[in-house]
C-alpha cells in the first residue's frame, strides 16, 4: 500500500508551529548570549584569580560536559523546587541551556586564550597594564576571533539540543510537534515538517554567525598571519 501523506492537518496548526519556532529561537538566542557572557567570565576568572578558582571552574566545566543535558534539565526543573526555588518550565529550560552551553564555550574560549602567543602578554604587561587589562584589551578579542567557528558550531548544537526541553513540557518546536501529533495522529508528516524547520533554523543560524563573526572580527585571518610571521622570525 503506498504511503498517503496528509499535510493539511499539520498546516492547520501553523499558528502553534510559529509559536514553537519563536520559543525555540528565543531560548537559543537567550542561552547563546547569556552562555557566552558567562563563559567569558569563567575563563577570565580561571586566568586571573589563581589556582583554586581555576580548579572550581574546571570542576564546573567537567560536571556540565560529562553529564547528559536531559539530566541537567531535570535536576533544575525537579531539583530546585526541593530547595525552595520553583522555576517555570521555560525559565528552567533557559537556565539549563545557558549553564550547559557556558561549560562548552568556556572550554573552547580557554583554548583560544591559550593560543595567544606569550609575546602579546609581555607587550601588554610592558606597557604597564594589569593582568586584567591585558586579558580584556589584548587577549580576549583575538582569542574569540580564533575560536569563533568552533563557538558557532557549539551554538548550533545548542539550538538543536533545545528540543530536549520538550521533556519538561516547554512548548518549543519539538514540544509543539508532540502536541500536533496528538491532535492530528499524523506522526510522520509532523516530524517531516519539524525536521525541515530545524534544518532551516540551524543553517540560517550558521550563516548568521559566520556573518556576525566577519563583522565583529574583521582581522580573524590577520591574527594568525602575524603569529606565523613572529614564529618564523
Amino acid at each position: 500500500m503506498p504511503i498517503q501523506f496528509q499535510f493539511e492537518p499539520i498546516f492547520a496548526e501553523s499558528d502553534r508551529i510559529v509559536d514553537g519556532v519563536l520559543l525555540t529561537l528565543g531560548l537559543s538566542f537567550g542561552a547563546i548570549v547569556l552562555g557566552l557572557v558567562l563563559a567569558i567570565l569563567l575563563v577570565a576568572a580561571k586566568s586571573l584569580l589563581g589556582r583554586w578558582v581555576g580548579l572550581l571552574v574546571d570542576a564546573y566545566v567537567e560536571l556540565m560536559r560529562n553529564t547528559p543535558f536531559l539530566v541537567q534539565l531535570f535536576m533544575l526543573f525537579f531539583g530546585l523546587p526541593l530547595l525552595g526555588i520553583r522555576l517555570p518550565g521555560t525559565e528552567a529550560a533557559l537556565l539549563a541551556m545557558t549553564l550547559n552551553l557556558s561549560a562548552y564555550a568556556t572550554e573552547i574560549i580557554r583554548a583560544g586564550v591559550d593560543s595567544i602567543h606569550r609575546s602579546q602578554l609581555e607587550a601588554g604587561l610592558s606597557l604597564a597594564m594589569t593582568r586584567r587589562q591585558v586579558f580584556q584589551h589584548v587577549v580576549l578579542m583575538p582569542a574569540l576571533a580564533r575560536v569563533w567557528p568552533a563557538l558557532s558550531s557549539q551554538f548550533v548544537l545548542m539550538l538543536l539540543a533545545s528540543s530536549i526541553c520538550s521533556f519538561i513540557a516547554v512548548p518549543e518546536l519539538s514540544g509543539t510537534a508532540a502536541i500536533i501529533e496528538q491532535n492530528t495522529f499524523r506522526s510522520f508528516e509532523t516530524y517531516i515538517v519539524v525536521t525541515l524547520i530545524y534544518l532551516v533554523l540551524a543553517l540560517t543560524l550558521k550563516v548568521a554567525l559566520d556573518r556576525l563573526g566577519r563583522a565583529i572580527f574583521p582581522r580573524i585571518s590577520s591574527v594568525d598571519r602575524l603569529d606565523a610571521k613572529a614564529e618564523a622570525a
Binding site: S119, E122, S126, T130, L226
Partner: peptide, 23 residues
C-alpha cells in the same frame, strides 16, 4: 605587581617580533 607597573610607565621596551596588537 604595583611597583612593576609604576616602573613600566617609565621604562619602555621594544621587542624583536614587534608584538603589535593585531586586532
Amino acid at each position: 605587581p604595583k611597583r612593576l607597573r609604576a616602573l613600566r610607565k617609565d621604562v619602555g621596551i621594544v621587542f624583536q617580533s614587534y608584538n603589535l596588537f593585531p586586532h
